[in-house]
Amino acid sequence: MPTNTNDPRVKRTRQLLMQAFMELLEQRKKNVSSITVQDITSYATVNRSTFYAHFEDKFAFLESWMREKFLEKLKDELPNAALSDIGSLRTLILIVFDFLFCTRPYMTFADRQYETLFEVAMQKELNDLLFTWLSEQAEPSVSRETVETTALIASWGIFGSAVEWSRHPQDRSAEDMARDVLEVVAAGLAPVIG
């Protein structure tokens, strides 16, 4: 792994690899599992050794790709990429639903091996965002452990609901599902934020 991820050259190379992967997904109509490290490096016109200088393996690359795409979506659609109230929590829930809906077409049965990897990457970002917000909003009497647990439960509740919905989006609208998820999550947050 590069030691200085803030180095502009490192950022450029990582971005080049990510763009190559996205273009292979979109233009070649390939699925995640069918794209190899060799495909990515050839399309990005870099050596395989360059890829491995940035990522341990394809799994590490895919986790980074999922995390970056999710964070981009958060920055684009959530003011300041932060939560401020229940309205922004609703927006966050819809972002998660939409993100999973948009990435599902790139996944096939062969890609199931990567689902857990993607779940962990997204859920961690979601948990971090919720924990930061809850830490700022928590009643003074609420312990850090309670805030951590609440963020963990809420993040998995939002994420798990979105995963299930994304498998069968025709059964119910994202808006309806998000409204119900928000109601349950908000009730779970009430003991922490009052």
Rank of each mutant, 00 (worst) to 15 (best):
H54P: 04
Q27M: 06
M18A: 04
F99T: 00
T116I: 13
R67G: 04
G87M: 02
L126P: 07
L117G: 12
N127D: 08
S42K: 13
F131V: 06
G157E: 01
T149M: 11
M177H: 12
R12V: 02
T150I: 02
T103N: 09
K58W: 07
G87N: 14
V142R: 12
V10P: 09
N47S: 13
H168I: 03
T3V: 08
L16Q: 15
P140N: 07
R28C: 02
A151N: 05
V120T: 14
R144G: 07
G188P: 06
R90C: 00
R90E: 09
E175T: 13
G194Q: 10
V163K: 15
T150F: 11
L16V: 00
A187V: 01
N127S: 08
A53I: 01
F101I: 00
N31T: 09
V147C: 10
T146M: 09
K30D: 02
T50E: 12
D98R: 12
A186V: 11
I35S: 07
E119G: 15
D39N: 15
D76W: 05
V120I: 11
L78W: 03
K58T: 06
R179L: 07
M1Y: 08
F61R: 03
F59K: 14
D128M: 12
V142K: 09
F55Q: 04
L71K: 07
F61S: 02
V184W: 15
Q15P: 00
Q27W: 00
L126F: 06
L16R: 15
P191A: 07
A178P: 05
R167N: 10
K58G: 12
F99V: 00
F101E: 08
K58L: 10
T132H: 14
V163E: 11
D180F: 10
T3Y: 14
A82G: 05
R104W: 01
E72T: 10
D180M: 10
E56F: 02
L129V: 06
N127L: 14
A162N: 06
S84N: 05
P105D: 01
E23G: 05
V46A: 04
H54Y: 12
K58A: 06
F99M: 01
L16I: 01
G87Y: 06
